[in-house]
Design a protein around this nucleic acid. Structure first.
Lengths: 217, 217
DNA sequence: TGAAACCTAACGACCGTTAAGTAGGTATAT
DNA sequence: ATATACCTACTTAACGGTCGTTAGGTTTCA
């Protein structure tokens, strides 16, 4: 599992409130539309205070993502390592992601908006890196599943892409609707894994032939 | 099938080039980051020319989306009506969407970025409406499939959401990578339908129980 | 003659960022 | 012991730049 660069979490109360208000505003209006003026106003400090703790708006954003994401990412890797069987691992990933996202729906809103929204110099590259970490975990699980004969129909990267599409877009859509906590339930997580593994068709079962997926060729 | 409001397509050459350059810039940089100054500069006209043809930047965007989207949407509805059987209809929707998106990958980039990206007043509401039209078609196909006993495991809205997640996020991801035309192939479309209907697991088949999905409660 | 298609030149508002200064605590040197 | 230096945590007040938009005038062609 790739390592994460260590980033100092907020030590000061002012700094933490700054990051928290930034999270709210980024989630509501997006990175670009949320101005540093709004952020410092919501926090109740002046502008140079923000630049005292963060070297720029981009640095503020990255610090914020590390703060909310890193512990959960390490937890995800640990859960996968402690679980055996492809189906169980996928359930663990999905339940874990749903739990993480419903605990604070502002986080997935910010992350998916910046990952899949318009390109923002500096931010998009950073989020691609963060998203790649998660994708690598899923891809490894798929590889193990293919090797063990538990998965059919495509190679590991293709299957990982499909699974991540299902997972991410569900979270993206549901975390934007009212009451995301009532929607991102463990029952839904488990049923999504069932759909991925068994499908919803009633007809005779055939094995899909998903073409290979190459990231950048 | 819900009707679309009639919007005058570009009659003038200058107007069409304006919309086309706007499409390029919106796809590359997003709605907010693409300025009217860049758009008029790429077109080779002055700023008041843009405001001669469009009443505002928002109007420019909506005109652009209607221009590229409306004919394809009507085509999609027609294809579904002329196709029978749930699996065939889903294949037709996915193949049609892939063809439409690979014909001009700028279009899905703009549409998904504004639909699933940060909220932009005026734009987000408009795109939710446009996206709702497509979702309604998929949902009706699912309803027919459930009624005919061709689909199991959930109600029509839930299944439609899952299918749209698969479809939209695949298009979203692949249309942002290099060579989207080589990626959004009919073979991939068909295999995605197979995954949706049959799954990729090798184990004993069980029927998923997807919890009901309610749009706004 | 008049409407369609375009121009120059500015408007006010907001953006991210920073220079320069200060209150208050704490460590250090005499 | 007390003056000095230094640090953290903040302040006021601007900087230069980009934004969407428009008032008002000009060309072109039917």
């Amino acid at each position: 599992m790739p390592t994460l660069q260590a980033v100092r979490p907020p030590t000061n109360d002012t700094e933490e409130r700054l990051l928290d208000k930034a999270l709210t505003l980024f989630a509501d209006k997006g990175y670009e539309a949320a101005s540093v003026r709004e952020i410092i106003e919501a926090t109740g400090v002046t502008r140079p205070v923000l630049y005292y703790y963060c070297s720029s708006k981009e640095d503020l954003f990255q610090r914020l993502v590390h703060w909310k994401h890193d512990a959960a990412y390490r937890e995800l890797g640990k859960i996968v390592n402690e679980t055996s069987g492809c189906a169980n691992r996928l359930r663990a990933i999905l339940r874990g992601s749903f739990t993480f996202c419903s605990a604070d729906p502002r986080v997935p809103r910010v992350m998916f908006q910046t990952t899949f929204g318009p390109h923002i110099p500096g931010i998009s590259e950073f989020m691609a890196e963060v998203g790649g970490l998660r994708f690598a975990i899923v891809q490894q699980v798929m590889q193990d599943g293919v090797d063990a004969g538990e998965l059919l129909g495509g190679d590991a990267p293709s299957l990982a892409l499909i699974f991540c599409c299902l997972m991410d877009q569900q979270i993206n859509v549901l975390s934007r609707l009212p009451h995301p906590k009532r929607r991102l339930t463990p029952e839904l997580a488990d049923s999504m894994v069932d759909v991925f593994l068994n499908g919803v068709g009633s007809g005779k079962r055939t094995v899909p032939k998903v073409p290979p997926f190459q990231g950048n060729s």
